[in-house]
Design a protein around this nucleic acid. Structure first.
Lengths: 163, 163
DNA sequence: TTTAATTTTGTTATGTTATAACATTTACAA
DNA sequence: TTGTAAATGTTATAACATAACAAAATTAAA
């Protein structure tokens, strides 16, 4: 998990070749699914691509409308099934406070990120921090609560929008 | 903020007189609204009471149906307006991952809690931890992200359901 | 390689959560 | 007491999500 903190941090201002990100993510997803013996079908792959192509967290119905544009009438279950699969495989994350989805840039390892959501530009960055993880784990352990899944989202202003 | 950690922690198994909790919460809300110069109208107070009376996080439409039962036909905006007011005043919290609401037992002070949600019994406990708060704050600061609002929810099994 | 079982996708309908827009009433202060 | 602002009522609709069952595609087994 080398440089785990920074790899997934990319506010909107960061100038990077996003097309490259998408390709990399798709390739990695492909490999991962093969190694896990699950099927990254065309539909699933296309949804993953659409999520990645979006520079912001994207809602299910936005995915749906893009899908409908290119493939003709598509129904909600098509999208939700694909999203569910991608979530299960850790290929995307769901931002609860937005009802929206973002690509995950390190799907190989289990993790719960911290999502920084800019209320101004709408971008979301996934970051990780061992200190936070530890603090939460210790707290739940102390209380005898068996944690399984965690959601941590912070709204505010990203560096680009503060400036 | 004496004993802040434990006051708001009450999993379902905890045997306490919940009716008492409700009364206390309503009284405190009343006082708080007076001191803030905002109006805790009958509608708002009744919604707060309904939220508190529920032993689990309660959805807006559950509040709505209870309200309709006792007051005749009621429309969604009535409930959402009351909920919005209560959220603004910190009298309730919204659990994002459940689209549901819980009463807040210490509305006088600004805070962001950690919600422990039992996937078995459905109860939700609000806890606080300075170490977690600090870790998150330090992380966001380091990244130059100006945090304004935070949600932290953990799904798992509460002590009563693990046993 | 045909068949059977399983997984994935298509389709229709509906359930659930939330808000926009505008009319009416209520509270309170000038 | 009347003007103003806040709160509520009302209708309609937007936004998010899933149930249920049919059809097709994939895979494994015979």
């Amino acid at each position: 998990m080398e440089n785990f903190d920074t790899v997934s941090l990319s506010f909107c201002g960061g100038t990077h070749d996003h097309k490259n990100c998408v390709t990399t993510a798709l390739d990695e997803a492909e490999q991962l699914c093969i190694s896990r013996g699950v099927r990254l079908t065309d539909a699933r792959k296309r949804v993953l691509e659409l999520v990645w192509e979006s520079h912001h967290p994207i809602g299910a119905y936005d995915v749906l409308s893009k899908l409908s544009q290119e493939s003709g009438k598509t129904a909600p279950p098509t999208v939700y099934r694909a999203l569910d699969f991608l979530l299960e495989q850790g290929l995307i994350h769901r931002i609860e406070s937005l009802n929206a989805f973002v690509g995950c840039s390190h799907p190989a390892e289990e993790h719960s990120g911290l999502f920084l959501i800019c209320k101004d530009c709408g971008c979301a960055a996934e970051v990780h921090d061992a200190t936070i993880d530890k603090a939460i784990l210790e707290k739940t352990d102390t209380l005898g609560f068996k944690a399984e899944q965690r959601m941590l989202e912070v709204r505010g202003l990203c560096p680009d929008c503060t400036a």
